[in-house]
Amino acid sequence: MSFSDEVIPATPSKMSQMKALNFDPKTKRLSLIVKEIPKIKNADDVIVRVTFSGICGTDLHITEGSFPCKDSPLTLGHEFSGLVTQTGKDVTHVKTGDKVVVDPNRQGIGCNKCSYCTNGKYHLCTSGGINNTIGIFRDGGWAEYCIAPACQVFKLPSNISLQTAAMCEPLSCISHGWERLGSVPSYARFIIQGAGIIGNLWATLLHLKGYKYVTVSEPLAKRRELFEKIGTGYEILSPDQLKAKFTNEAAVLEKGFDICIDCSGNATAIESGFSYLRPGGKLCIFGVASPNARINLSPFDIYKKEITIMGVMVNPFSFNKAIALLDSMSERYLKYDILGIKVFGLDQHEEALVELKQGKISKAVFKIC
């Protein structure tokens, strides 16, 4: 499935309202509403007419009430692409009609005073990173128009479509995760927990980089079937099939993994992935779990095997890297049909959420304008 990019002029002066999908955190209800189109207020503001906007696993947690967000009604959506329709007077790097993606997290901006900010880790600041995200704490891209500061708006190369560019934000987080893993030898053995869109994108990145020894674990048969369509040749197993391969410690030493990347956010999956790690292994907790989830790991095994456990949060300074990945991966890996992505209209949001939760698709993306 593909869509042509459309050149859209500036917002008509007589047009003042737009459709938006709003979330009420008190009732946990999504509603398609009509609201005012955002207006330029600051010299560095950019208004984007949204074309494609994805539903993230974090959005599912938000709508279920298990992930923090703004405590009053807002428009969700933090993965989106579109065209510039208006800019503030100080904006020079993009202009009306440019194809762009929006980083929902402000690059390099937190309080600029704490030890995290002053050491280049602004995303760990209590006012930086995910604590001020467009689509979580500010109105986002599940709407016809969205406003963002210029520093969060990135112009796309002409050869990257707006449809493909909707994958930029998740790829920017994966880029950060890859850097967190550090030097990874070519012989490393990987286990990816979960074949939703994030697990699929991790697998395509590893395939792009030439890694051969990759296994994916996914409980849903439909998602295992969708993963096969990507054509990486990687083994994909159900959790029970994977467990049958590792009946004792000797099997883990012989056939286990050097790196587990959890993309499920599921405590049981994280625990099982940890148990399959060989000595010197790394557990990368990438998927977003419920804040109330807990895992039970053996500190003795962590000590004995010298296991490294790391988290990955958002995408510090990695949006330009993600745009480069879009350029490298788009023709081979990022086609919606291959990845199991289905496109919906905003008025189909209930259907989109149901199919996503049931695992019939790997990801849902709204086609808005």
Rank of each mutant, 00 (worst) to 15 (best):
residue 253 L to N: 15
residue 306 E to H: 07
residue 21 L to Q: 10
residue 70 K to S: 09
residue 250 A to R: 13
residue 153 V to T: 11
residue 32 L to D: 15
residue 256 G to E: 03
residue 38 P to C: 00
residue 37 I to W: 07
residue 205 L to A: 05
residue 163 Q to S: 11
residue 28 K to G: 01
residue 57 G to V: 06
residue 137 F to D: 07
residue 267 A to K: 06
residue 339 L to P: 01
residue 77 G to P: 06
residue 105 N to D: 12
residue 217 S to G: 04
residue 41 K to E: 15
residue 19 K to T: 12
residue 168 C to P: 04
residue 223 R to F: 08
residue 188 A to D: 02
residue 221 A to K: 10
residue 3 F to C: 01
residue 54 G to D: 06
residue 53 S to M: 08
residue 137 F to T: 02
residue 153 V to H: 06
residue 94 V to L: 08
residue 299 P to G: 08
residue 356 L to H: 05
residue 10 A to Y: 01
residue 114 C to S: 04
residue 301 D to L: 08
residue 351 E to W: 02
residue 264 S to R: 01
residue 143 A to Q: 07
residue 233 G to T: 09
residue 222 K to P: 00
residue 103 D to I: 00
residue 69 C to Y: 07
residue 89 K to S: 14
residue 208 L to K: 13
residue 230 I to K: 03
residue 160 I to F: 08
residue 134 I to M: 07
residue 218 E to G: 05
residue 238 S to K: 09
residue 151 C to T: 12
residue 8 I to V: 15
residue 58 T to W: 08
residue 89 K to D: 12
residue 209 K to T: 08
residue 49 R to M: 05
residue 356 L to E: 07
residue 119 N to D: 15
residue 167 M to E: 03
residue 152 Q to F: 02
residue 323 I to K: 09
residue 145 Y to A: 01
residue 108 G to K: 08
residue 150 A to T: 11
residue 182 G to Y: 03
residue 60 L to R: 10
residue 303 Y to T: 07
residue 311 G to L: 05
residue 296 N to Q: 12
residue 38 P to L: 00
residue 14 K to P: 00
residue 315 N to S: 14
residue 180 R to P: 04
residue 104 P to C: 12
residue 321 K to N: 13
residue 270 I to N: 01
residue 310 M to C: 11
residue 350 E to M: 04
residue 117 C to G: 06
residue 270 I to M: 13
residue 307 I to P: 00
residue 283 L to D: 05
residue 266 N to D: 12
residue 289 A to L: 03
residue 123 H to D: 14
residue 325 L to A: 04
residue 302 I to W: 03
residue 228 E to W: 00
residue 346 L to R: 03
residue 107 Q to I: 06
residue 34 V to G: 05
residue 276 Y to G: 02
residue 249 E to I: 03
residue 116 Y to C: 02
residue 250 A to H: 11
residue 189 R to E: 14
residue 365 V to G: 01
residue 331 E to Y: 04
residue 329 M to A: 14
residue 269 A to Y: 10
residue 349 H to R: 04
residue 149 P to D: 12
residue 220 L to E: 07
residue 213 Y to C: 00
residue 5 D to E: 15
residue 227 F to V: 02
residue 215 T to L: 06
residue 72 S to P: 08
residue 54 G to V: 05
residue 97 G to Y: 13
residue 328 S to M: 09
residue 31 S to R: 14
residue 143 A to T: 05
residue 157 P to N: 10
residue 189 R to I: 03
residue 12 P to H: 11
residue 65 G to Y: 13
residue 184 V to A: 06
residue 124 L to T: 01
residue 278 R to G: 00
residue 126 T to E: 12
residue 131 N to D: 09
residue 74 L to Q: 08
residue 291 P to N: 11
residue 266 N to K: 04
residue 300 F to S: 09
residue 126 T to V: 10
residue 18 M to E: 14
